[in-house]
């Protein structure tokens, strides 16, 4: 069967128009979709693994708003390590994706979501979502920071009971946010969370261009969302901003405190590199 486009008996005008249309591509931000997908698949896998807990249809549109919120929240964390990879206001341009779409498992990504996140299904390990593609160990550390979004589940690291975290930011409110067991408000509106995520994206966008402004926004965001979903990410970015401002000693202490408090954080390798660079 011959395609109309190739059929000389069809008017040239129509064939040309079909060819033009066939050459056009939808303008979508594939990175954003992939990050969202990557964050959501463990939840889907968990529902599949627990058939009695299945939702009627395990698709994005069928997920509860709470689950979606968790997934959306994960977007903010997923791009933390690739600071320059996802920026607020970045045009939705189709770009080739990094070669490491099956992001390597990081210790933090395997942690269960805390119940204070709304009691959604806990994501299984990434190995369970990619049964056919075992990941080489240590792959994440080989990936360029700026190009590859590393998987993060914000707040996924359960805070160790009894540990007294030292806040990286001077505001008492942020210290309060990291107190173990501090309940995140179940009544937090999704619009509030979206705003928090948007702020984090803005922080990341500012980080390289104007780290001082990024720190101001971090403090403002901490005040606005002292018990928000992205406390850990903001704290990590705050330390990175200090390094960018060449406040190396302060940044080094902050980084060490951050690593002590969040040993599973995917930001840890980056911070360790920054500490090492500062020493040289």
């Amino acid at each position: 069967m011959k395609r109309l486009i190739d059929d000389p008996e069809i008017a040239r005008e129509l064939r040309a128009e079909m060819q033009r249309y066939a050459n056009e591509q939808a303008h979508v931000d594939l990175k954003r979709v992939y990050t969202r997908l990557e964050a959501g698949l463990p939840l889907i896998a968990a529902q599949i693994a627990r058939p009695h807990a299945r939702l009627p249809g395990r698709t994005w549109s069928s997920l509860s708003s709470t689950t979606k919120l968790l997934i959306v929240a994960a977007i903010g964390g997923s791009s933390i390590a690739g600071i320059s990879a996802f920026r607020a206001g970045e045009p939705a341009v189709v770009q080739p994706l990094p070669g490491s779409l099956s992001a390597a498992p990081t210790p933090g990504s395997d942690q269960p979501l805390p119940a204070s996140h709304g009691g959604a299904a806990q994501p299984p390990s990434r190995g369970s979502m990619q049964p056919a593609a075992p990941e080489p160990a240590g792959r994440a550390s080989k990936l360029p920071d700026a190009a590859v979004p590393q998987p993060v589940t914000p707040g996924a690291q359960p805070l160790a009971a009894g540990s007294a975290p030292a806040s990286l930011t001077p505001e008492p409110s942020s210290r309060q946010a990291t107190v173990p067991g501090a309940a995140r408000s179940r009544g937090e509106t999704s619009s509030g969370s979206r705003r928090e995520i948007a702020q984090l994206a803005r922080i990341k966008a500012l980080l390289e261009q104007d780290p001082a402004a990024a720190r101001r926004l971090i403090r403002a965001s901490q005040r606005e969302f002292p018990a928000g979903l992205l406390v850990e990410e903001r704290e990590g970015l705050d330390v990175i901003a200090l390094f960018a401002l060449a406040q190396e000693e302060r940044a080094r202490r902050g980084a060490e405190r951050f690593i002590a408090r969040y040993p599973q954080s995917p930001l840890r390798p980056k911070l360790e590199r920054l500490i090492a660079d500062a020493r040289e």
Partner: peptide, 20 residues
């Protein structure tokens, strides 16, 4: 596994096609 293409590779290779 050798006969299976995972969702990551599918996305990398064909996401633009699917979107269009």
């Amino acid at each position: 596994a050798s006969e299976r293409i995972g969702v990551e590779e599918l996305f990398r290779e064909h996401a633009q096609f699917v979107a269009s």
